[in-house]
Computed example of a mutant assay.
Amino acid sequence: MVRWAEVGDGVLVRRHDELDLSLGLVVGEHGCLVVDTGGDQTQGAEFAAAVREVTTLPWTVVVTHGHFDHAFGTAAFGDCEVWGHPGCAAELVSGGERQRAFWVEHYRAAGRDDVARRIEGTRVVAPQRLVAGEAEIDLGGRTVRLLHPGPGHTGHDLVAHVPDAGVVFAGDLVEQGAPPAFEDAFPLAWPTAVLRLMTLGAATVVPGHGDPVDVAFVAAQRAELLRVAALCRAVVAGEMTAEEAQALSPYPERFTADALGRASL
């Protein structure tokens, strides 16, 4: 099932059962901003068509980070400005084929040949408008603020803050419905990135996966990330074993193992 949810005036989230993915749309007077584009060109085209049912205004795209499920659908939006962090662009240029091969194999092993073929046939597009720190996009009558809050889920996370609506699109810096993913993460720095996100003062936070959440949810998840960071430091310092850290972690073994594997970053 795919469905829209309105989280503010002219601010919508497109929810997908596949990977519990959340994609965003912000509508202004003269343009609209698409937040992430999905995991392949077909999903991107379906999202683009859904956006066109909401608005015919010219679109701009922002990619919150360079993982396939957020960025591989961008080609479907044609010749438009695509914003992202320099590290996001680098990941899609140098790591796009690696990601493609991994996820094609993953979906084939899961018996999802249809998805595997879609990813195989996707043209990967990297952002060309690069934001290392902060930038603003004027949509007419409202401004969206783009911000890199520091390394967290990746080294190149970018959030999209809509101040007049009290909404921030957090990408995978915040997860709802599943634990945060640490495969490419910086577990020691992640809590600081989330704290900076919280200082934006948005009442509604849209995670990259799962339903929109409030500040209390984000604060609780940050407390868990702080616990994981402390466990990482303790293992690196030789104060406990990885097995002991696993037993004390708020997250399942696989997620904690990934965090411990990146404990020195």
Rank of each mutant, 00 (worst) to 15 (best):
G95E: 09
V205L: 15
L92K: 01
G73A: 14
H70I: 05
P58A: 14
S264A: 14
G166V: 07
R3C: 09
P86E: 04
A220L: 01
V54H: 14
L195K: 15
M1V: 13
A193N: 01
A219W: 15
V35H: 05
P207G: 12
A132Q: 10
H70E: 09
P58C: 13
V205G: 04
W4A: 05
T256S: 02
E81S: 08
P58L: 14
D36S: 10
G208I: 03
P179G: 06
G141R: 11
D69T: 08
M198Q: 02
R112W: 14
G10K: 06
F68C: 05
A49T: 11
L25N: 04
Q43F: 05
A234R: 00
Q128T: 13
M1T: 13
G39L: 14
P127R: 12
G171E: 02
W4V: 04
V205F: 11
L23I: 00
F47H: 06
R112D: 13
R98N: 05
Q99Y: 12
A110K: 10
E175T: 06
V144E: 06
L19R: 11
Q43P: 02
T42L: 13
V63E: 03
A135E: 04
R15C: 11
H106T: 03
R196V: 04
L147S: 03
G73L: 12
G150Y: 01
T64K: 08
A75P: 06
G121C: 10
G78D: 04
A263G: 00
G150E: 02
L188H: 00
G39T: 11
E253M: 03
S22L: 01
D172Y: 07
V168L: 15
H161G: 08
R112N: 11
Q43W: 06
V125I: 06
W103V: 11
S94M: 11
T143L: 08
E253P: 02
E91D: 07
R108K: 13
Q128L: 09
P187A: 14
R52T: 07
D69L: 10
T74P: 08
R15P: 03
L260M: 07
P127I: 12
E46S: 07
A216K: 15
G96R: 02
A219S: 15
T256W: 00
T122A: 12
A110G: 07
E120V: 15
W103D: 14
D17M: 12
G171A: 04
D214I: 06
G87F: 02
R129N: 04
A71H: 05
V213K: 11
V228R: 00
V174L: 00
A45N: 13
G155C: 09
G208V: 04
T60N: 08
R3H: 12
A110I: 04
F68W: 05
C32H: 09
V213F: 14
H67T: 06
V2W: 09
T56F: 04
G87V: 03
S22F: 02
S264C: 11
